[in-house]
Design a protein around this nucleic acid. Sequence first.
RNA 1: GCGAGGGUAGCCAAGCUCGGAAACGGCGGCGGACUCAAGAUCCGCUCCUGUAGAGGUCCAAGGGUUCAAAUCCCUUCCCUCGCACCA
Length: 901
Amino acid sequence: MSEEGYDHAAVERRWQEAWAEADAYRTPDDAEDPTYVLGMFPYPSGKLHMGHVRNYTITDAYARYRRMQGDDVLHPMGWDSFGLPAENAAKERDSNPRDWTMDCIDTMRGQMESMGFGYDWEREITTCEPEYYRWNQWLFHQFHDEGLVERRAAEVNWCPSCETVLADEQVEGEDEHCWRCDTLVEQRELDQWTLGITEYADELRSAIDDLEGWPDSVREMQRNWIGKQEGSTVEFEVGEARSASGSGDDEEPRTFGPVEAFTTRLDTIHGATFFALAPDHPISEELVAEDDEIRRFVEEVADPDGDEPNGIRTDLTATNPATGEEVPVFVADFVLSDVGTGALMGVPGHDERDHAFAERMGVDIVPVVAPDPEGDADPEIPDVSEGAYTEDGVVVNSGEYDGLSSAEARESLTADIDSAAFHTQYRLRDWLISRQRYWGTPIPVIHCDNCGPVMVPEEDLPVELPEFVNTTGNPLDAATEWKHTTCPDCGADAVRETDTMDTFVDSSWYFLRYVSPDLDDAPFDVERTNDWMPVDQYVGGLEHAVMHLLYARFATKAIADMDMLEHREPFTNLLGQGMVQLEGEKMSKSKGNTVSPQRIVDDYGADTARLFMMQAARPDTAFDWSEEGVKSTHRFLGRLAETVRSFAGNDADADGDADPAARYVRSEVDAAVAVATENFDDLGFDLATREAQQLVGTLRSYRAYVDEVHAPTFERGLEVAIELLAPVAPHLTEELYAELSDDDGLLVDAEWPTADVDLAEVDRRRQLVENTREDVRNIVDVAGIEDPERVDVVVAPEWMHEALETAIDSDAPNLVGELMQKPEIQRHGSAASDYAKDLQAEREALRPALAPEREREALEAAAWLVEREFGAPVRVLSAEEADDAVANKAEPGRPAIDIAE
RNA sequence: GCGAGGGUAGCCAAGCUCGGAAACGGCGGCGGACUCAAGAUCCGCUCCUGUAGAGGUCCAAGGGUUCAAAUCCCUUCCCUCGCACCA
């Protein structure tokens, strides 16, 4: 530890205790619409990692900032504590998921406390406890009553490693692997429970437009996932060809009746020259049973994942309802039973894939849409022999529809064809929530031979998990005593549902539970929740861009429709925090490139870790962990401590003058407040903290320059620096606040500083000072001045400021003329007309300068910086006080400089 | 293929919403002050040239709009993410 350091361990422990003692983060139940700041609650995996630290530092800093701004703040934390890893860990250790989970929670809660995260722990929720998950069951009940719960036999995604099914959202990549363990997912046919998220597909999609506080990427991903498509359904009569009674017997040709297809391009129906069925379409299955060739195709050739569109021609034909023609029917592997209706009309002229298929199968390719012609020319029928024309255009070869635009044709055809109807289709599937695992919320259903599946009555909830049994398969199946029960309806022997709920059910509404975590007759207090929701600022990783965030939106809407909530969206502003990387790579255990937060806290303290992370980059971008950067941040905190302590110790009775240098410090203090506040408001912690750090640098430079600081100025500067850093580095600032301030209160409760300055003015002032200093350096350097004896800085005369102002406001065509009409300008003769010409030349680029007296003040206040640097006295002069030869070079915003050697 | 977001000096990274000064900050490098010395701290420099504050070239590449472009528009290339035989 260097001399400038401080005992972070002692400081941090002291204030963590003080905050706990003072209940500093408690949000009372009677708070009125507190600012709700929330980080996605963690899965208790054992230890906090850097991603957690970044996530929760962001919410904590923002919550602290809002609190200092005078808001009531709700900033809770909990545990997303059901899930497979606990089960696996329990098996490995021959323990049980509950004990393992609770241990992890204790560890992580301790680590969060040591990071100084200010949570209202009285609102802590733990989803694996019956007090929480009973409300999952209760909500399942309500969803059921609303008709949003279904049990259906479904082809489902099965992860052989996790031994459970997965929702579509949990299957990733082209190879379809499990989101959790990367194992390739298989298909199985199982009876499963689903929630009716598709009923909300339209609203979930359209409401995205209004989520202006969300990142575009997430909004777009959700739109993609929901996958809305507008088109028409249309029926084709399918049967054995009328003309195909080759054997000469008199049997009537077999018919399969109308088969529905979905298309977005009904305008191309006159070009539909084939019809295709999915291999598992009911008709295909019938054909498989009776035709070996088709069976061989379906079982051996069909490859839905391959690049080639494969198919086999059947003896059937389909009647194109627009043309009345019979077109061949294929079973084809690119037709998917879960897309559209599992059957499609093939239009090779206008669809790439249909085109490729038609070429392979020797089907006719007929163009029926032509590009929009220029002007009144006739449409030119495109050549589709080599490739499809896939754009909209004008309809041709389509009888009475010729000449219509694609859009008009879709309208007319949908109206005219009896079996056609407009239809909107979504890619979104119902949410499959059954999991064949132990460590989750038991689905509150009893299966009775007489009554079928029966809901467990509300008064019998919760259905609690039985003791864990270490077994291969589903432990709930092995819990025979728990499993066997009686039917709530008829009293007969019955068995419990042994599936548990997807853990995303837990997290789809947990933000509501924080409002009233202990309520035992409802999941949440309706009235208070209406006041407190929605979450004002939600922060988390974007791996949940679709899953959690979509489920939460759905749950919110569904609950709103049960008249329990007046809000239809849960999260007003969403921030997706960026990754913490090491040398450009994502930290991960498997790569072994992790940095342990615990070690950083031990070595440097929580404040250093927090400040380093916040200052390194904007919160939504990835950044590289750098030990050098951490050290530099740690040294900064040491300097801050030293600066405050030496002032509180000795300098407090300093009686330095309120001289121009002190004035400079004061204006920098105000500037820091204005800039940092603006940045905190929109989560720009990087810029806000840099501003505060820069202020500390200014204070130190000032202290080093003057013999004695102007105590009131310096004290205010220190106080402001401490306050601006308080949200990010709460412990040390709290300690220093106590040492500096007479206030007995805590810094967490202190008021955010204010400053009456205009940001544009701040910019102008800083620019002026910086440019002037640079100019002096330039001159000294370029002119090779060894040892300057005196530096004169001459400000422009008042009339020039006037001229500039006039020029900026003026829209007169002849600016020189207008300026020279003003006597107070004109009387400066050729100097005036020269300047007027300059202004004219640059008139579009003119920008306002500080007012003349403000300019002079700013330069006088900053003169010490130049004196310090060059060891020469600096005079700030008015134009009148200076030599004309020098003064003539001055312009507003750019003083003349004269250096004597 | 479709969609979204990006490409800024040696590296990381602001700025782009609202066009107006080679473009914040950090790291690294160089010089200086302090010091016996090192560390820490402080002051500068860090695209090229420079004779008093200048000139040149610059924000992936190329074009355009504008008095003025890192910022707005178009095209191309590259990166990241999401979706994808989607009917």
